[in-house]
């Protein structure tokens, strides 16, 4: 249990070639211990989303390694990376990404269906109860509010008991009250289920729900903060923004 659930080693990702090349990630080393909640923060263009994409095997890194659950997945082919994504990684997206023609219950079971496994009805119900939507199991997404849709998406991310849940601005499309509910749910999945959670966000209030905040600037790790508070995170961010501007000048 001592090895991290997710580890990236000297991770670099560049777009384009030659002088015009942009390094979205530039030698990032990070380990995410099991049962922890980490927020990844940084100004726009700092490489937060690229980090998630590479960690999830959505895009290959230019160099460096990605290790999920003790398994080096860097050089796997598309087929294996897809399997990795649906079995070892749970995703929560900013835009919810529920399939419009499946009910809440069916959306939760979808990752298992894609793996050609029949979802266990009791487990799906338990998860929906956990996110407070037991009575909405048969509803289609358009009959649910944004917050409810994101809660369904959280249940879906947990259904395979993944090694790590990656959340990309999960509260970006929600109002602040609904965002707090969703963040509370994410927090409780770490506390109650010992889930490992990595969340990209630009919101200091959201980051304050995490155990640790990692700051990225220009594709590099620019600091970390344990037991963050919203104010401390906001202060640090303002400082980093100055650094980024100073670096660019």
């Amino acid at each position: 249990m001592n090895t991290p659930a997710l580890q990236v080693i000297d991770l670099t990702r560049s777009y384009g070639e030659g002088v015009g090349a942009v390094r979205a990630l530039d030698g990032v080393d990070l380990g995410f211990a099991r049962g922890t909640f980490t927020a990844v923060m940084g100004p726009s263009g700092s490489g937060k989303t690229t980090l998630l994409s590479c960690a999830a095997g959505l895009e290959p890194p230019t160099s460096g390694r990605v290790v999920v659950d003790d398994q080096d997945v860097t050089d796997q082919d598309e087929e294996h990376r897809t399997r990795l994504r649906r079995e070892r990684i749970g995703f929560v997206f900013q835009g919810f990404h529920l399939l419009p023609y499946l009910t809440a219950e069916q959306n939760v079971g979808l990752p298992l269906r894609l793996a050609d496994r029949r979802p266990d009805a009791t487990r799906v119900r338990e998860l929906l109860t956990r996110v407070g939507l037991a009575d909405r199991a048969g509803h289609l997404p358009h009959a649910l509010s944004g917050g409810q849709q994101q809660r369904v998406a959280i249940a879906r991310a947990l259904v395979t008991e993944p090694a790590v849940v990656l959340a990309d601005e999960p509260t970006g499309a929600l109002d602040s009250a609904t965002a707090r509910e969703v963040l509370g749910l994410l927090r409780s999945s770490v506390d109650d289920l010992s889930q490992t959670l990595v969340m990209v966000t630009h919101d200091p209030v959201a980051a304050a729900y995490a155990d640790t905040v990692v700051f990225l600037v220009d594709g590099r790790v620019a600091g970390r903060m344990d037991r963050p508070t919203a104010d401390a995170v906001a202060g640090q961010l303002a400082h980093l923004a100055d650094l980024a501007v100073g670096g660019a000048a």
Binding site: E79, T82, R86, E87, F91, F93, H97, P111, L114, R156
Partner: peptide, 9 residues
């Protein structure tokens, strides 16, 4: 989105 969720191409 389906692909992001782990459906193979």
């Amino acid at each position: 989105q389906l692909w992001l969720l782990g459906a193979t191409p």
